[in-house]
Amino acid sequence: MKMNRNFAALLLLLLVGCNPSDHGLIANDGSLTLVADGFQFTEGPASDSLGNVYFTDQPNNRILKWDSSTGKVSVYLEPAGRANGLYVDRQGHLVAAADEVFQLWKIDRNKQHEILAADFEGRKFNGPNDLWIDKQGGIYFTDPYYQRPYWDRTEKEIEQERVYYLSPGKKEIRVAADNLVQPNGIIGSADGTTLYIADIGDSKTYAYEIAENGELVNRRLFAGMGSDGMTLDEHGNLYLTGDGVTVLDASGKKILHIPVPEEWTANVTFGGKDQKTLFITAMDALYSLPMKVKGTRF
């Protein structure tokens, strides 16, 4: 199974002409490699300061960990609130969009969780999906509605599908972005000045300026395509997911497409000890691809 998928991944790269020298992004002789499979649906990859990568197997209600020292994958937390998106904060805590209970969690080193956000104005969220943490510790998170088979409810408590901001310190929650059909992927630039939000329901990705108080201003259309999860590299290139991985430069121009031999690519992040390996969650599997560029977390 692994050999077949790895061969298929390599063949796809060759067929579409993903020559590393053409783009300056993929490492010389770098090839897409199947790291692990046998899951139900992988999502939410996030790396810590040591390059370890955490990701979710949401239908199986667990968070897994790829160890940067051993290269092995193991179960990190189970059950896990059917977590979807993940992010590691500056203190090394894992922050999770706990979709099962419509909450945002902070998971400490003892694997105990604290509820950071549970509702907005007394109504439960639709289902926190993906998140990004700014330099001050504020958290932006998307809240689309995807009816889950494990929910008792069958309708929204909040009609609008928005992006929220959980402020640091005071822990106040406010609407950060609305006028969106179905926000999903989210990522901020390393300098903290720009936030990218994918409106997967409208096949668009927007760029917002981040004001000093965390407010999002001056929205502009960045790409005429949406995305599930997404990430950025050190040069400001944006990596979108869905059909493989599509890379856009800082101006929004498509510069690379990385095919993945799966029906859907859900999310992507940089990890490894040097932060120069691209990790891709796709259907029941986790893939990796050596890169020439590093990822950026803050």
Score class of each variant (00 low, 15 high):
1 M>P: 09
2 K>V: 12
2 K>H: 15
2 K>L: 10
2 K>S: 15
8 A>N: 08
9 A>Y: 04
9 A>T: 06
9 A>R: 11
10 L>F: 09
11 L>H: 14
12 L>G: 11
15 L>E: 11
16 V>A: 03
17 G>E: 07
18 C>M: 11
19 N>K: 11
19 N>M: 06
19 N>D: 13
20 P>M: 04
21 S>D: 11
23 H>K: 06
24 G>V: 05
25 L>A: 05
25 L>P: 00
28 N>F: 08
28 N>Y: 06
31 S>L: 08
32 L>R: 03
32 L>Y: 02
33 T>I: 09
35 V>N: 11
40 Q>V: 12
42 T>E: 10
43 E>V: 03
45 P>V: 09
48 D>C: 13
50 L>V: 08
50 L>A: 15
53 V>K: 11
53 V>N: 03
53 V>R: 09
55 F>D: 00
55 F>Q: 04
56 T>E: 10
61 N>Y: 10
63 I>G: 03
64 L>H: 15
65 K>G: 03
66 W>L: 13
70 T>R: 10
72 K>C: 14
74 S>L: 07
78 E>A: 14
78 E>M: 13
79 P>V: 12
83 A>P: 05
84 N>I: 05
86 L>G: 04
87 Y>C: 10
88 V>R: 02
92 G>L: 10
92 G>F: 14
93 H>P: 00
97 A>P: 02
98 A>N: 00
99 D>F: 14
100 E>K: 11
104 L>D: 00
104 L>Q: 03
107 I>V: 12
111 K>L: 12
114 E>V: 10
114 E>Q: 12
116 L>T: 01
121 E>P: 00
122 G>Y: 07
122 G>S: 08
124 K>P: 01
128 P>V: 03
133 I>C: 05
135 K>E: 08
136 Q>T: 06
136 Q>W: 07
140 Y>N: 04
142 T>F: 04
146 Y>K: 03
147 Q>H: 10
148 R>T: 06
150 Y>N: 11
151 W>S: 05
151 W>H: 12
154 T>S: 14
157 E>W: 07
167 S>A: 15
172 E>A: 04
173 I>P: 00
177 A>E: 04
179 N>M: 08
184 N>A: 11
185 G>L: 02
189 S>T: 13
193 T>R: 15
194 T>K: 14
203 S>G: 09
208 Y>Q: 01
209 E>G: 12
210 I>S: 01
217 V>I: 15
217 V>E: 14
217 V>H: 13
218 N>P: 09
220 R>D: 04
222 F>T: 08
226 G>Y: 04
227 S>G: 07
232 L>I: 05
233 D>I: 04
233 D>H: 07
234 E>T: 07
236 G>C: 06
236 G>Q: 01
237 N>D: 11
237 N>E: 05
238 L>H: 04
241 T>E: 06
249 D>F: 04
256 L>W: 12
261 P>D: 06
261 P>G: 03
265 T>M: 11
265 T>P: 02
268 V>D: 02
270 F>W: 13
274 D>S: 15
278 L>C: 09
279 F>D: 10
284 D>T: 15
287 Y>G: 04
288 S>N: 13
288 S>E: 13
292 K>Q: 15
295 G>R: 12
295 G>H: 12
